[in-house]
Write a protein that binds this DNA or RNA. Structure first.
Length: 377
DNA sequence: AACAAGGGTTTAG
DNA sequence: TCATCTAAACCCTTGTT
């Protein structure tokens, strides 16, 4: 039984090892050398993690997320290896130029992150995958000619499949997944390749004896719901069958946060001053984007790298730096006051705002009409 | 039963 | 040993309507 899905054609574009490739563009002599882009925490000389590495560095085991120190060990026989700090402004500028180009291919466009986007080309292709492939080829050469960058591109009938197609051939890949080839494409892939299945979900599936996407698609749905919950159980089952109705559309931000690493771990609210730049940044963002937040929270990471958070929801939205700082300070004071148990030291601190509303009239829709129409009927 | 809030977990890039 | 930063989606519990 063919699967019922509206006929769409979606293109997924994924810029290859983006930050490192940006550096190769402005310093072409780096191309033959291992390039490691680092997020330095500022705690000690080399503390921090690897953000991205080019494929030369990857061939030595360097990858996203590993400590910079470990990357240096992996490359210590290679004096030509380079370690660079992130230059987000430069990457953003490059990304913006590319995204602007991509946007021109369809009204239906979605920027997923700095290096990823979806384009729904249904209306321009009318179900014709050859047309979609031409558009895809065009996109690849455009990015290559104008920015000297390679990308991996996937074309399929929905976002999840387009993404998986793009992931299946990297770097500089081009994969058109025709509807007739979806089943064989998915059948023997490990469940880990499914969008949304990370190491934890993979482990749970392993204990259910589910190893491949094909096996997942045949697994009893109510059992999946029992294990993963209603939303995820249902979603995994659908994704495994190649079904994904998620539309290609721009999302509006629902939260904004800033977090930093302290020079030394704190066991009291001694870092009040460090909050100022975070608060300024957040307040500024709210004002520029003409929004207000109703929930203000603090995020912190303990010395054992446990992530925690505390938050408070106000009755009315704000974009004021003073007010956000006051709320955040109160929450941190409360954390140290409560002492809790064991009282872990704090390594990283941050602030998050959410329950964002449009700037002007009211922070939220009225929860009930009874307030306005008091019972007279 | 439906919804809001608060806090934790997982994924992803 | 070492462990960044941001955002989203979901889960569970508790409390209110």
């Amino acid at each position: 039984m063919p699967i019922s899905e509206p006929q769409r054609i979606v293109v997924a574009v994924d810029l290859d090892y983006f930050f490192a490739q940006c550096e190769e563009v402005r310093h072409p002599e780096l191309k033959a050398r291992p390039v490691v882009i680092c997020v330095y925490s500022g705690r000690t000389e080399d503390s921090g993690v690897v953000s991205t590495a080019n494929y030369v560095a990857r061939s030595f085991g360097v990858k996203s997320g590993i400590p910079i120190v470990n990357a240096k060990k992996l490359l210590d026989k290679l004096p030509e290896a380079v370690f660079l700090p992130t230059d987000l402004e430069y990457y953003e500028t490059t990304s913006d130029k590319i995204m602007q180009e991509l946007r021109s291919h369809s009204k239906m466009f979605e920027r997923v992150s700095i290096d990823e986007a979806f384009i729904d080309v249904s209306s321009e292709c009318n179900g014709n995958y050859s047309r979609a492939a031409e558009i895809g080829k065009g996109i690849k050469s455009e990015i290559r000619n104008k920015q000297s960058l390679t990308c991996s591109l996937g074309i399929a009938r929905n976002k999840s499949l387009a993404k998986m197609a793009a992931d299946s051939k990297k770097p500089d890949g081009f994969v058109v997944l025709h509807p007739d080839h979806i089943e064989p494409f998915l059948k023997d892939l490990p469940v880990r390749k499914l969008i949304g299945v990370g190491s934890k979900m993979e482990a749970m599936m392993q204990s259910l004896r589910v190893r491949t996407i094909g096996e997942l698609s045949a697994f009893d749905e109510s059992k999946l719901i029992g294990v993963f919950g209603k939303n995820m159980g249902t979603r995994f089952k659908l994704l495994a069958r190649g079904i994904d109705h998620d539309p290609v559309e721009e999302k509006i931000a629902e939260q904004y946060s800033r977090i930093i690493t302290l020079k030394t771990d704190a066991d009291s609210f001694s870092f009040a001053k460090e909050l100022t730049p975070l608060v300024e940044d957040i307040s500024n963002w709210l004002k520029v984007s003409k929004r207000r937040c109703r929930t203000i929270g603090v995020i912190y990471v303990t010395s054992t790298i446990k992530l925690k958070n505390r938050s408070n929801t106000l009755s009315t939205g704000t974009d004021s730096a003073e007010e956000i700082l006051a709320q955040a300070s109160m929450l941190f004071e409360r954390i140290f006051a409560s002492e809790e148990k064991g009282s872990q030291k704090i390594r990283r601190i941050g602030i998050r705002v959410s329950k964002l509303s449009e700037d002007s009239p009211k922070p939220d829709a009225p929860s009930s009409l009874t307030h306005y129409f008091d019972k007279s009927s």
